[in-house]
């Protein structure tokens, strides 16, 4: 069954025709070609598909696209304006080797952004809690955590 929805993606309002079976991640990836949102499990367990829905992180593999009608979505693509000016969390990941294969990274970045929005000065434990919904198979999380610590610092200094 097809359904037409109105959704704001990265600040831009769009009308998209979706199949009701389609999850938000697929709509972003396939209809809107925003392929930075990745699918690692499809069942809500890995966080690779994390996006912001109305300002909060959710796993977009487990949200129906049709249910995003009237909502606002932010993806990793919406965080940076150009290749040379990424979001401070992304810059920190780049500088501190907070990634390897990069498959988990967009989701990880969004979780970190959410964390730092709520808690600009998190402890190591709070950071680990904040990204517990994002599996990474490459990094062992060490440099992810140090990247987020660095981002917190730079965001505070920038603010």
């Amino acid at each position: 069954m097809k359904k037409s929805i109105e959704v704001t993606v990265n600040g831009k309002s769009q009308s998209v025709e979706v199949d009701t079976r389609m999850v938000l991640a697929d709509m972003l990836r396939e209809n809107l070609r925003l392929t930075g949102t990745h699918i690692g499990c499809g069942t809500g367990s890995c966080g690779a598909c994390t996006v912001m829905l109305d300002g909060r992180t959710v796993k977009s593999c487990s949200v129906l696209a049709a249910d995003a009608d009237g909502r606002s979505v932010q993806t990793v693509e919406g965080l940076s304006t150009s290749a040379v000016s990424l979001h401070p969390v992304q810059e920190a990941m780049v500088e501190n080797q907070g990634l390897q294969c990069g498959y988990c990274t967009p989701g990880m970045v969004l979780s970190a952004v959410e964390l730092l929005n709520k808690n600009p000065d998190p402890t190591e434990d709070e950071i680990r809690h904040g990204i517990a919904g994002n599996l990474c198979r490459c990094t062992g999380y060490h440099f992810v955590v140090t990247s987020i610590q660095a981002a917190a610092k730079s965001m505070k200094e920038g603010a």
């Binding site: 392929t35 930075g36 949102t37 699918i39 990793v76 290749a83 990424l86 990634l99 990069g102 990274t105």
Partner: peptide, 21 residues
């Protein structure tokens, strides 16, 4: 030296097979 692919991947601009249409 940090990895050469970091920036592209952190931006979500990597290209994986499933991304190709």
């Amino acid at each position: 030296q940090t990895s050469l692919t970091n920036r592209q991947l952190a931006a979500g601009k990597g290209v994986f097979v499933s991304d190709i249409q």
